[in-house]
Design a protein around this nucleic acid. Structure first.
Lengths: 196, 196
DNA sequence: GCATTTAGTGAACGCATCGTTCACTACTGA
DNA sequence: TCAGTAGTGAACGATGCGTTCACTAAATGC
């Protein structure tokens, strides 16, 4: 029973409502079936309000994803157990892929063509935080002698997230626990562990 | 100067023309901007002829990709030099991604949602041949003592192609020679080589 | 408090593209 | 030569896009 007084929202207040509506809609119907009218209706807003803010669906969804990303901003404290830490982060990533962020990624990939500056920025926004977290985990491992120093090579640091992304995009759903375990035990751990 | 007699094609003849038109169009404008009218026009066919054969764009493109795939079917002879063989195959994959097949993949990923049987089939059609080739390369390496037997684990066999796919989907264009080199030297070779 | 400015609403619009239909036409094979 | 089959091209309704506009609610200034 949403009251009929329905005070009219504006500014950031309205914007947040639109973002939420967009993300819910995204999770429900997927990027490919996303309709602007549906988002507007769900946010109880006029379509014009959407187009006043963003030129098209793609921009709206990017903004919504960015909004969500900055709001959550995960605090992560490594335990020092390299494998366990990686597993924790990887689980988080897959949980994320199961929600609207995953749909947004899928849609973005589908529309990507050559590389624009905008695309670089988005990719960085996705990859950089992950790289930082894994680098941190590796550094601690190097300090306590469980990880080879060469593991800090960017391509290795980004390896686990890359494989999760690949799995998600190709299979259409996030990696399971079992897959995470395999990635760790068959690929990442053998590559980074120090000693024989 | 296509003559104005323009004998009207039918059956497989027409179908091939449509496939070619679709793939050319795909390479030119990308999956997201693909229009059925454009394909029909390019193939000098009626739109109705397309819809008589396939229910929508997605099915048409899948059929075209399948057509192309079966027709080329790459014969590959390993040399025994594991790194060089992998490099050759990887180069082929990236070349392929640069053409219509890459666009088809991008479009497919964008529309993917949960996993249907159809999706499994397509994924297998992409992955299985690659897995077979890499397994063959690895087996020879194992036989001549340059590769660890454990490298035959499916996730490792599929590692190089996975990373190429990930690169292509996230960056919007295929991996360069340099990237292929890094993947090989930083990741795949260290993981599979026998001895210390 | 009242008037002015700013911002959102909701309906309507033109446009592009989808997927379908239909009358017509060109090939095919008996 | 003629009946049957398959393709053509134009038109169609439906849908969703992105825009516009008259109206209205909230914020701001006095």
């Amino acid at each position: 029973m949403t009251d009929s007084t329905a005070s009219r929202r504006r500014g950031d207040d309205l914007e947040r409502a639109i973002f939420e509506a967009a993300l819910e809609e995204l999770a429900e119907v997927g990027y490919a079936n996303l309709r602007m009218e549906a988002i507007a209706a769900r946010a109880k807003a006029g379509k014009a309000s959407l187009y006043k803010r963003w030129p098209d669906r793609a921009h709206l969804i990017r903004a919504a994803a960015r909004h969500k990303a900055t709001e959550v901003d995960t605090p992560f404290e490594p335990s020092g157990d390299v494998r366990a830490d990686m597993e924790r982060v990887m689980r988080r990533i897959t949980e994320n892929q199961g929600g609207p962020a995953g749909e947004a990624l899928r849609g973005w990939v589908g529309e990507l063509r050559a590389s624009s500056e905008e695309a670089e920025e988005i990719r960085d926004a996705i990859e950089q935080p992950r790289i930082r977290v894994f680098a941190k985990i590796f550094e601690i491992g190097i300090a306590n002698g469980t990880v080879r120093p060469e593991a800090l090579h960017p391509r290795i640091v980004n390896l686990a997230p890359s494989l999760l992304t690949q799995h998600f995009l190709m299979k259409g759903r996030p990696a399971t626990e079992a897959v995470i375990g395999e990635i760790l035990d068959q690929i990442v751990m053998p590559l980074i562990t120090a000693g024989r």
